[in-house]
């Protein structure tokens, strides 16, 4: 399989604080990679390196390289807006814009200069269908997204990311603020999306990691301790730290 992302010797510091230490990781095309590890170990920091969201934070220094489809996204002169357009991101808490459902999904297209009305309408519809939201909201696309339930909001946020046809989707604990039923829906959705997209997901929920991911990476205090296929990590990890974390989590 082709390599989608190649991270090598990645270091990140918030001021003096060394948050990511020499990370090396490659991510396969059309796979789901789960990032696990205790709180504060740098999972969010890592995932935000993949679409350069950390640029928005003050006093961050990053070195090492991140190749997306062979292109170094930290090289000088890269079009960062375009990078973020190509890499979708879903956040821990649903964060729909206080606009209509339609406008939420259309936003990414509009800010990237798409004017064609019927094209936008088709894309909105397609994305809502993919996220299984279409049937629930098709009659009131003008309704404010704020009025949707939490689970619906999160699926809307996923639809919003899909509308711009990203090549990769980053999800930072997308279900941690949701009820079990909505969580199950989103997990199903991830399973569907995997056919088309490369997905990186941060999760605290071991069952979720086990259910949806192909590869699992274990982070511990800024270091990437171990990466392997999910089944190996969960049944037969090489590192003791991984072992401890996983048994602690399951037990």
């Amino acid at each position: 399989m082709a390599k989608k992302v190649e991270v090598s010797n990645l270091n990140l510091r918030y001021g003096d604080f060394h948050a990511l230490k020499n990370i090396n990781l490659s991510i396969e095309e059309r796979s789901v990679t789960a990032l696990i590890g205790p709180s504060g170990c740098g999972k969010s920091t890592f995932i935000r390196c993949l679409n350069r969201m950390n640029d928005l934070v003050d006093h961050v220094t990053i070195d090492g390289s991140v190749l997306l489809e062979g292109e170094d996204i930290y090289r000088k002169g890269i079009d960062i807006d375009n990078l973020r357009y190509r890499v979708g991101m879903v956040f821990q808490k649903p964060n729909p814009f206080p606009k209509s459902i339609f406008e939420n999904v259309a936003y990414g297209l509009r800010v990237n200069g798409v004017k064609d009305k019927s094209f936008i309408e088709n894309k909105v519809r397609e994305s809502l269908v993919k996220t299984a939201l279409w049937d629930e909201v098709k009659d009131d696309l003008k309704k404010s997204a704020i009025d949707l339930s939490g689970g619906q909001q999160q699926r809307l946020c996923i639809a919003r990311s899909l509308a711009v046809e990203p090549t990769m989707l980053l999800m930072d604990e997308p279900t941690s603020a949701l009820d079990p039923i909505s969580t199950a829906k989103i997990e199903d959705l991830i399973f569907e999306l995997k056919k088309q997209y490369t997905i990186v997901i941060v999760t605290h929920n071991m069952q979720q990691a086990a259910r949806v991911s192909d590869v699992t990476a274990f982070f511990y205090i800024g270091e990437l301790i171990e990466t392997d296929t999910t089944s190996k990590i969960f049944t037969n990890p090489k590192q003791e730290k991984t072992q401890n974390y996983i048994t602690g989590r399951f037990g």
Binding site: R84, Y85, R86, M89, N95, Y107, G108, R110, V111, R160
Partner: peptide, 24 residues
Amino acid sequence: SLRVASYALGATRLQTVFRIVLPI
């Protein structure tokens, strides 16, 4: 979180300001 969401969709800072921040 709304600013961040907007950037994540490839919006520039100005677009984020004028389409998300100011209307709210």
